[in-house]
Design a protein around this nucleic acid. Structure first.
Lengths: 94, 94
DNA sequence: ATAAACTGGTTAATATTATTAACCAAAATT
DNA sequence: AATTTTGGTTAATAATATTAACCAGTTTAT
């Protein structure tokens, strides 16, 4: 009934990042920054945590001379998100 | 779509406390401790935060010589929980 | 009756996590 | 060529959560 919630995902910012990536498959750093209203610093750190956990892949490229960071959810990330959704349902009475 | 999540409720322990109290209306400290697997110290602190927020009421009595702490969810607590449930749905794609 | 162990907690110290502020390299603008 | 802007990172700080030590009283065993 009340499973432990994945601490990687039980964070507003990381959850919203994954939430976006689940739908989009891929998103740019600046796009995530705008959508989540996070500061760049915080976003950078939280993306790195998701990458460390193997939930996303961070691809660094360049676009028109500027660095461009793309984020992509991994199969592991998708599975983790689905588990989180099911786990938290126990808390929410859904 | 992605509303801010109430930080008081966006904590595994406090969420599970509220989750239990929503159904039970009232529960004893020791009961909550067993159900949530929290340490007594942590539970004491988190209950106090919920009380400070006005989400629960803490009633201190005695039962057979021993102190007995009862916790009751308030209307404000119920509303906050319901809002949290709706807010997090945006993140979960439900 | 008294020491030891247990109940039902609280509080203070520590560890973890998150947020911001300062910084960096490179590119574009004035 | 100095200043500003882009796209970030990293170090310092602030906020949270967890644990460890404690407290007041009770029960049990000696």
């Amino acid at each position: 009934m009340l499973n432990d919630l994945d601490p990687i995902l039980h964070s507003q910012l990381r959850l919203s990042i994954i939430s976006l990536l689940v739908s989009l498959e891929e998103a740019e750093f600046v796009y995530l920054k705008e959508k989540t209203k996070a500061t760049a610093g915080n976003l950078s750190l939280q993306l790195d945590k998701l990458r460390e956990a193997g939930y996303i892949e961070i691809i660094k490229t360049f676009k028109k001379n500027y660095p461009l960071t793309k984020c992509k959810i991994t199969p592991k990330g998708i599975k983790a998100f689905e588990k989180y959704v099911n786990d938290i349902k126990g808390y929410l009475h859904l």
